[in-house]
Design a protein around this nucleic acid. Structure first.
Lengths: 180, 180
DNA sequence: GAGCCGATCGGGGGGATGATTA
DNA sequence: CCTAATCATCCCCCCGATCGGC
């Protein structure tokens, strides 16, 4: 067990829970936790084989292919798949996001870069914040976005928008990957 | 909602797992654990048939999640969540603190390092106290802070500010953790 | 402004890292 | 001299916007 240990404080009720789940002599709180959380024990011993695990253990997100995710459905729909350019896809996704929750979408107005304003209620606002910003109206929406940016930045913007609007990482990743 | 706390040592891999499962600012390891261990079979739709993995808990008390004190509300608000950089978050929190009590905020002027002045009423004051100090105005505030410091020091500063302004440890910790 | 998209490259800033000092 | 904490240099990444490609 050559592992770095960390010390944390836990609520007594959790402590009790751990106690109740001690399975053999000599188990440390860490051992019990590892089992309960379904982690492979660090050094020794066996692990409880339990495939379905609720806890997100890795950063790797297995991308769901079926529309378990509302946005997946959209990203695979003809309406979206028509688009060829990254800009079109970018705008299209934003438009869909707006439609899903027009109120909350207003939050995107908070996003900006070092100097540029990323979103606005008019193209002029955006033009004022930088040069050759190429503002475009997000279709069927009262909002505008800047459009002159590396694809990588468009992805970044999409990621920020998704986070702000409260989407889960998987949906966010899907949307980001779709900007291309 | 005061609970006795217990201190335990856990494997670093578990610690990392907890970190990856932090859902909102201000959550303690205990909060995260509570959520993970408490997991109902499945939140949505189908249930994972994995009794092997089920935690024995006759605990009827739903384990408390993070208390909602005012600053946590802010830390989870769009206004704060927009920010990507540690500096931005740092400034944003300070701005919020100022707004809550502009008078008392003046206390921060007392904070300094070995040679550098940390806060001031102008950028020049701060520049005079060190090199490449990168003074920035705290938004919507007559105060400036130095900005060129390791994140760890920004956290320290935040901690000091919170203490000076009389915030409780939980709020302080939440603010400190949010600088990242 | 009006052709439009977006890669490329210059510039600037964040903040890690190594230096410095108590 | 050694350690811990602060300082500030400087690398790297990110953003901006020009300009090449279609």
């Amino acid at each position: 067990m050559e592992q770095t240990m960390k010390t944390i404080e836990i609520d007594e009720s959790i402590y009790d829970l751990l106690l109740r789940n001690v399975n053999s002599f000599g188990e440390t709180p860490s051992d019990v936790l590892a089992r309960l959380l379904n982690l492979a024990p660090s050094g020794n011993g066996r692990r409880a084989a339990s495939p379905t695990n609720q806890v997100s253990q890795e950063t790797k997100t297995p991308i769901p292919t079926s529309p378990q995710n509302p946005i997946m459905g959209f990203l695979n729909s003809p309406d979206f798949l028509v688009h060829g350019y990254a800009v079109e896809k970018f705008l299209s996704i934003l438009s869909w996001l707006y439609k899903r929750d027009p109120e909350k979408f207003a939050q995107v107005l908070l996003l900006n870069g070092r100097s540029r304003q990323y979103f606005g209620r008019s193209g002029e606002v955006l033009e004022a914040s930088g040069n050759s910003v190429m503002p475009k109206r997000i279709p069927d929406t009262p909002y505008w976005v800047i459009t002159n940016s590396p694809t990588q930045l468009k992805k970044q913007m999409m990621s920020d928008v998704m986070r702000l609007l409260g989407y889960d990482p998987a949906s966010s990743r899907a949307a980001v990957d779709a900007v291309r």
